[in-house]
């Protein structure tokens, strides 16, 4: 099971990195989302994996999973929504403003130059 979780983190990271290195905003945003999953799962896993022992205190139960990473990841998930929304808005604004959704600065074409000079 540990192998599966670790490999899932690895797969999510690899997919995330590949998409982050694409040239257009939309795949980059998806890539960042995949990386967010990877990071959240990684942080969560720092409490180690425990099955069937949620941190809800009950009489007569003494083993619980580590609650702290859970609390931290919970807010991280919500914050990552906020950050995704901001990045999407920036990407969308840039696209609407320039009709171009490249993430890299585009080399100036001759047309642009003549426009700038005139």
């Amino acid at each position: 099971m540990e192998f599966l979780v670790a490999s899932a983190i690895g797969i999510l990271t690899a997919g995330g990195i590949y998409l982050t290195l694409r040239l257009r905003t939309f795949p980059v945003i998806l890539g960042v989302s995949l990386l967010t999953y990877a990071v959240n799962v990684f942080l969560f896993a720092s409490g180690r994996l425990t099955v069937g022992a949620p941190p809800i205190l009950q009489d007569g139960v003494s083993t619980y999973t580590d609650p702290l990473p859970q609390a931290l990841v919970l807010t991280a998930i919500v914050i990552s929504f906020g950050m995704t929304a901001v990045v999407v808005m920036i990407g969308l604004g840039a696209f609407l403003g320039s009709d171009d959704d490249h993430v890299d600065d585009q080399p100036q074409t001759d047309e642009d130059r003549s426009e700038g000079a005139s």
Partner: peptide, 14 residues
């Protein structure tokens, strides 16, 4: 680059 990053995080988490 992606495979490298993926392998690194996999090894670390494992």
């Amino acid at each position: 680059v992606a495979v490298l990053g993926g392998l690194a995080t996999f090894a670390l988490s494992f």
